[in-house]
Simulated assay, not measured.
Amino acid sequence: MAETGMAAGNALMHLDRLAQKALALWDLPAGARARLINVAENTTWLVEAPGGFRAVLRIHRENYHSPRAIASELAWMDALQRDAIIEVPRAIPGRNGQPLQTCTTDGQQPPRHLVLFHFINGTHPSESGDLTAGFERLGTIAAKMHLHALDWPRPEGFERLIWDDAAVFSPQATWGNWRDAPHVSPALRPVLETAERTIRHRLAVYGNDPSRYGLIHADMRLANLLEEGNITRVIDFDDCGFGWFLYDFAAAISFIEIDPAIPALKAAWLRGYRRVRALPAQDEAEIDTFIMLRRMALLAWIGSHLDAPEPQAMAPHFAAGTARLAQEWLAAQRR
């Protein structure tokens, strides 16, 4: 159930107390304090101390990732950094030598999982104007990460989310049922139901051969890149998991799927991708299916995350936009 008003405010007050208390779990400079900078799946806090120290604290959402899943995320990030694939934030071990910590405060149960990351420099690429150059870089980065995922020997017990059609459409869908999202009216449901059936059929035919399906970032938007000079760094691996490689493009255009610039951004992403990894025409032909799959997942996400500002702002129009995208996509399948 979504939290609003006073309930949401109380939750953030508890999390603020938790963040300040948890800092003692790490060997930090005197005077370190945490300041909330983002509320999404988790809450993210900028930790600062006199003398210029900075780090980023992530307090995990309750009942979203297990400790093993968080450790698996950190293992892949470590491997990407060690193998010089891409620069990523590094976790800071706590006083007990472990990167994953747990902490609680009075009035907040059960304990929350926390990870503290080294602060990395850089600015987010502009999300206004011509985005093709940024998407070309995104495609190159995605291809490098996919090649690494194909060859990397995962640690025993590796556990991450799965981003397949069942994760979006089954009764146990990761982000809930899209039918429960705001403004999914009886008038919109038929086209969305048809889109779901068509997506599931196409993906069953497409299959999950290892050349197409593996470990992905699953949220590789421009907002999750940091640029400094000619260096591009990738952040926020919280959603990384197993899915189709081309889902990474669909995730890159999250929330802007109906923008007229999408065909140009797709072409740019593919150019960047093919500089590093071959992509057969059959795979390219299925990209729009993944765009539709991701959009349906985001519709469910909005419905199950109305305690956060971003989904609140998008909720009034997102269902109608999703239905319009579905109509256009279904019409393309008939041509």
Rank of each mutant, 00 (worst) to 15 (best):
I256G: 13
D307P: 00
N96G: 11
L270E: 01
A251M: 08
A30M: 14
T102S: 14
A281S: 14
N42A: 07
A11S: 01
I256T: 11
F119I: 12
P210M: 10
E286F: 12
E62Q: 13
G214N: 07
A75S: 12
H124F: 12
A300N: 04
F169W: 06
P316G: 15
R277P: 04
R82M: 15
A142E: 08
T198E: 08
I86H: 00
A323D: 03
R17S: 03
D180M: 15
P182D: 07
F245Y: 01
A91N: 02
L100V: 06
Q108S: 13
K144Y: 00
A167Q: 04
D307C: 07
P111H: 11
L222W: 04
L299Q: 02
R202T: 02
A173Y: 08
A250R: 06
Q20E: 09
T123H: 13
A252T: 07
A300Q: 02
L100C: 07
F237S: 07
Q108M: 14
L215N: 05
Y273C: 01
G303L: 08
I92R: 03
R202C: 03
D238T: 03
T104H: 05
A34T: 06
A332W: 04
E136D: 09
A278T: 05
A133M: 09
F53M: 12
W175D: 05
G176T: 11
T322P: 06
R90K: 14
A223T: 01
R33G: 06
Y247M: 00
A91W: 00
G243R: 01
